[in-house]
Every structure is written in C-alpha cells, then in structure tokens.
C-alpha cells in the first residue's frame, strides 16, 4: 500500500496520535465508517466507541469518547473528549464503572431522575467501549 493518510487524534490533554496510516475506521454518527488515503472532504460527529487504524499491517485500537472528525487534504483529524490506547485501559476499572453505571441506570429508571440518567448512559457506553477493547487485547 503506497498511499497513506495522516491521522491525528487530539484531546484536551494534548495530541494522542499523529501518524501516517493506511486505513482508519471510526464510530461515526450513522455507524462505523472507514477512511482511506485521498478521501473526499468529510465532517462527522463521533460516538463513544472504538477507533481502529492500520499501519504497515499492524492494527491499533483506541477508545474514543464523543467529539467529531474532519477529513481534508489527505488528513484526518479527530477532536474527541478523551482517547485511550488499548494497553492503557484498565479492564478492572472499566468493569467496575460498568456495574456502577448499570446500578445508577436502574435507580434512575425507578426514580425517573432525568439528568442522572443521561450521564449514567454515557458512562455505561464508555465502560462498554473500554471493555470491548480490553477483551481483544
């Protein structure tokens, strides 16, 4: 594969990834999408999930939480609230977070506290995304 695309993942804590890669797969608003070199200009919001990219045959996985991504001039930029590489994920913590979020969701359903619920749902999704990656490692 000759042509590559420049991938950048930027979070409030600084740039996480800045590399030339072969393919990027990301959890977009309308489902997962893949981007190869010389993709048309594109802008999408990003959901909580797994960002995959392949570079010289090796695949890397990142857990990303909400944000958006922009593709232009053979460059793909992700602006997300947080991003974690696979080996950085603490599976035990994610499992605890999942259980906590599930418990809170249950409580929210019973008491119908709305604000808590959206937050718990987001927390649950983040925990699930982390667990998915952690299990593959």
């Amino acid at each position: 594969m000759a042509e590559k695309i420049n991938l950048e993942v930027v979070t409030p804590k600084g740039p996480i990834v800045s590399e030339e890669v072969d393919i990027v797969t990301a959890p977009g608003f309308a489902g997962e999408f893949g981007v190869l070199a010389n993709h048309a200009p594109f802008l999408s919001t990003i959901k909580i999930g797994t960002l995959r990219y392949k570079k010289d045959g090796t695949e890397e996985e990142l857990m990303v939480s909400g944000g958006f991504c922009e593709v232009s001039n053979n460059k793909i930029t992700f602006l997300v609230e947080s991003a974690e590489r696979g080996h950085e994920i603490d599976a035990d913590r994610a499992l605890q977070a999942k259980e906590r979020a599930e418990k809170r969701l249950l409580q929210a359903r019973e008491q119908q506290a709305k604000i808590d619920r959206t937050r718990a749902e987001a927390a649950l999704q983040r925990a699930l995304a982390r667990l998915r990656i952690a299990q593959r490692q």
Partner: peptide, 29 residues
C-alpha cells in the same frame, strides 16, 4: 473552497447542534 464540497454526516445543522455546546465547554475550560 471547503464550503461546497464537504460531506457531512449527519447534516451540517445537526453537527452544529453538537458542536456549539462543545464550543462553550472549550471556551470555559
């Protein structure tokens, strides 16, 4: 140049709806 030929997913308006509150966060932070 980018104005016309960008692909948006979802529509630009919906993206803006997500982006604007985020923009507030960014400014405050």
């Amino acid at each position: 140049a980018a104005a016309g030929d960008y692909l948006y997913e979802p529509s630009p308006t919906e993206i803006m709806d997500v982006l604007l509150p985020l923009y507030m966060n960014v400014m405050t932070y």
